[in-house]
Structures are given as structure tokens and as C-alpha cells.
Design a protein around this nucleic acid. Sequence first.
DNA 1: CGCATTGTTGACAAAGTTCAATTTGCGTGG
DNA 2: CCACGCAAATTGAACTTTGTCAACAATGCG
Lengths: 235, 235
Amino acid sequence: MDRFSKPMPQASSHTLQVALTSELFAGLDRESVNVILVAAQTKRFAAKRTIVTQGERVTHLFLLIKGRVSYYKGTKTGHELVLRLLVPGDVFGLGALLRNPPLSLGSAKAISNVELAVWRHASIRKLTDRYPQLHENAFRMLIDYLKAYAERHAGLLTKTAEQRLADKLLDLGYRSGREHPKGVEVEVTNEQLGSLADVSLFTASRLLSGWERKGAVLKERGKVVIRSPEALVVD
Amino acid sequence: MDRFSKPMPQASSHTLQVALTSELFAGLDRESVNVILVAAQTKRFAAKRTIVTQGERVTHLFLLIKGRVSYYKGTKTGHELVLRLLVPGDVFGLGALLRNPPLSLGSAKAISNVELAVWRHASIRKLTDRYPQLHENAFRMLIDYLKAYAERHAGLLTKTAEQRLADKLLDLGYRSGREHPKGVEVEVTNEQLGSLADVSLFTASRLLSGWERKGAVLKERGKVVIRSPEALVVD
DNA sequence: CGCATTGTTGACAAAGTTCAATTTGCGTGG
DNA sequence: CCACGCAAATTGAACTTTGTCAACAATGCG
């Protein structure tokens, strides 16, 4: 195996594109990210398939390339608490960076058909040795999640259902909105949105209807089009 | 300065004792922990003093040696959301392990007179280079906090105020309970307990009174004595 | 002893949840 | 291409838990 005889392996350009936007690879140059990506496997899951299960050991690190994933926590009473709706560039399974990975704190489920870059525990460990920046980034992401959580929690105690729902809808629009002739289109059901905002799906339905009457949003099954974000901001 | 002429510096035995119980030093041997501790400064704060302030850059890592600290998040509406009551062995300021430390997500306030071991950013960075286990431990702790948070959040949606309050009281008893002729004594005010369980201080007062009538607890100003933990467990 | 902190209790209100009954939209298979 | 059936959304009505506010009591520090 002569080092001159073989071209450098390349990750698909779309995958590379997405990875470069991920916080996990912040501060790493294009080549390094490419090296890291070629160590990953590409996996696909059909809509509604479970990708990781709460309570099982975290043996893989995932980077979402295409589609949407719901990361949620099941509760004893059967409720599903959606922790975050993941969009391309988001990662999950950060526990796999540890020598002895912990048990997963939630489950991940494909909402649409999805494509993921997947690293096995052993290979991501090797990569973090070689690129310590990865560890640094992952650490920072955890702190950011913690911060986001504390805020969500504080919001639950101090804001009204309407404010929380509006906040989440706008956040989703920002993170995963699509162009639409009348505004920004967000793919989300009342139930998902409600769970993210810690509001029942009924309340979500009522509030959205109210906004629609005011002309702030349009609704379709499984979608919301934000027409005037200003109308949703309270302050 | 001859390396044979000077005895090895030693951390105070009590400090070492506490440090060895801390998750942050899990898997490190006594000598290593000692080396790490001598790089720290000992600081004392009087009751009610603020130790770190939300929103300021995290420039120091703290290990609580003696006393109690409240780690909380202030909200715009003036509420204080207590994230955790810290007891000896607990740490805060984990963000200081990052090269560019983030802003603090909460504030820390001394409840009693406290003693802390404190590392400056630069020195803790040197230590993590020398003892990578520190990084590993900190990472795991963040994941554990995240898990605890998700559970607290889920509890808020699925459990009653009574269950949540009971859970927190028992958790505190376990983490920081003291012997008492009639049971386990916990130093906590209704307000603190209420905030930890996401319950108003009035509801906390009412529930505790109810338990006292049933003989499950005894109350004194600033203290609760748990007489029969079983009576508080619901299942 | 006086004052600040902590705790108590009642009356009341409000914000959302729950449940049930329907309706609407959409993909699929005959 | 139509009909079936599931998933998503709607709407009303009753209910309930908990927070809010106010007035007051007790505790203990300096």
C-alpha cells in the first residue's frame, strides 16, 4: 500500500457540508473534518424507526445529515417528553466519547426518513485522541444544553403557555424553517410543539388557532407557516 | 531548590478527605488528588455571600469543602430557581475546564459559612492536561446533571407537588442528612425546598404540616427531621 | 428587646388539563 | 380511482391543582 498510489478518501460533499456547520466540528479545518467523516458509517432509517433507546448503553455517536429526529424521554406515566427536535448538523450520543459510556438518558426516533453519520465507540475514541478539539466542543455543547434546559425550566415557571409555545415555534423556524411563499414553513405537529413547550396538545391547538385567526400563522396538517414572527413576540 | 531538600507539600487532611469522595476525582489515586489540591487556593465565604454570579465568565473551578451553597438561576420575573443545593464534595464552575470558558448559567451563594478549594482557569487547564481523567470525570458529571434535569422536568409534568417535594426531601436527607435522636435532620427552609421541588413556599408549608400531623416529619425553623421516610414514598 | 427572617392559614382566582365527541386530511390497497 | 382507516386536529365543558395575596404568628439573632 504505497501512500502515493491511492487517492485520499473523501466524504460525500453533502455530508461534509452539513458536518462543517455542526458545533461538534467547530474550529476544525476542512481536512480534519474529512478525516473524521471517513471513519464514520452512513446509516439510513425510515420514518418512525427508533434509532437509540433510553436506558441502553451509548455505544455510538450520531451526526444527523438529512431528515429530522426527535430526541425524547419516556416517563412512567406514558408521557413522552420531547427534549429536542434534531435537524441536520445536530448530534446525539455524546456519551460515546467517554471511556465507559453511560446509559442513554433518552430515545431517538426518526420523524422523517433520515440519514446519519455514525461512529462506533472505539473509533470515536481514537479520533478524540487525535483531535482534542472534539472533546472540547462536546464539553461545550453539554454546557449549552444544560443552559438551555435551565432556561426551559425557568420558562415553565415564569412564562405563560402562549409565550413558551411562541418561543419554541420561533426557535424551530430559525433552526429548521423552510422557504414558503407566505413565510417560513416549519414541519411540526401540534403534539410535538406542545411537548417541546410543555403544553398539552389541546392548548397548542387552541393557541395556534388563535394565531391563525389573527393572521400570524397558517396551518396545515403537520406544518405551520409563520407569517409574521413579530406578532408572536411578546416582550 | 534541591528536590530532596523539601518535603512534599500536603493538602489539609480534611480537604483531602472530602476531595476523595468527589466524583470529579473518581479513579484518581490519593497522591494525584493531593497534587491537584495543592494547586488550589482555599477560600472562605460568610453566609449569604455570593460566590459566582450568573452571566459572568467562568474563570474558576470550585470544590466545596465545608458548609452549604445554593446554586440557582435568576429569572426576569425575579424568581430564583434553585438548581441544586451543594454539599461538601460537590463542585461548580466546570466551564473553567474549557479553553474559552463560557458564561455562568447560574449564581452560587453561600448558605452557611463555607470553605472552598479554588483553581484558577490557567492552573486547572494545566492539571487536566496532566490528568486527563479529570476531563473524563467532568464530562460524565455534565451528562449526569443533564439526566437529573430531564428527570426533574419530567417529574414536573407527571408527578404531583407532594411527590416532588417528598422526592427532594428524601434526596437531601440522603446527600446531607445529619443524625438526630428522632430521625434524619435536614437543614433546609420551606422556601429552598419548595424551589427545588418546583412548588411555591406556601404549598411546601402546607404539605410539610400535613406530614407532621401524620407523624412522618418534625419541623423546626430552618430544619426538617425525617422520622419515617417510608411514609413519604408513594410508588 | 426589637426586628428581620421564617413559617402559617384562609379565601380566592386563574391557567391549563382532561375527557369525549367529532372532523379533517391523507396515504394505501383493492 | 374510490373507499377505508389511521393520524392529526378541533372544540366545548367541567374540573382541579396550585399559585397568589393578605394578614398574622413565631422564632431567634444581635
